[in-house]
């Protein structure tokens, strides 16, 4: 039994690489840059509008996050965000709106499997790992910081 790479497979890999079309790099980078930058710009505009309305700094930031998440959820529901995703690639995946889309879309998709076992369970299919690694590393960072503080005080 041989499940490992053989020279035959290695030369086939080269052939696959040669014959598989590549993504249009400059164009897709430009689209990701423009859409991603645009979403961030929108976030900044909402935050500044909040400041004009005399909100606290933190409240204005929260307003901006809420608005973007709301907009993303709405566009996902209306079936627009997936089209934006095909156009912009990482430009609509990397901003917080992409994170919201990754929670809203499975929630919608698995409605037919029930509101608890479908919507409830599947909402975190993609967002779950982000929270697991994000929160775990924040705890780790917090712990390291805590012990460093003790060490330096002592």
């Amino acid at each position: 039994m041989n499940y490992g790479k053989t020279s035959k497979h290695a030369s086939y890999d080269e052939r696959v690489k040669r014959l598989s079309p590549k993504s249009e790099k400059p164009m897709s980078l430009l689209k990701a840059f423009a859409v991603g930058g645009g979403i961030c710009l929108l976030g900044q505009l909402i935050r500044d509008a909040g400041l004009v309305l005399e909100l606290e700094e933190d409240a204005a930031a929260l307003l901006s996050t809420f608005s973007l998440v709301f907009l993303s959820a709405l566009l996902t529901g209306l079936g627009v965000y997936d089209k934006l995703g095909r156009f912009a690639g990482a430009g609509s995946i990397v901003p917080i709106t992409g994170f919201a889309n990754s929670m809203v879309s499975p929630a919608m998709e698995f409605k037919r499997e029930g509101y608890i076992t479908g919507v409830g369970a599947k909402m975190f299919v993609i967002a779950g790992p982000v929270l697991v690694y994000g929160i775990s590393s924040s705890v780790l960072v917090g712990l390291i910081y805590f012990f460093l503080r003790i060490a330096f005080k002592g």
Partner: peptide, 17 residues
Amino acid sequence: ERQYRFPLEMGSVRPPY
């Protein structure tokens, strides 16, 4: 799509091949 890949309304990207 829902069995093998991503939810339909997710803005996912696939390679040209």
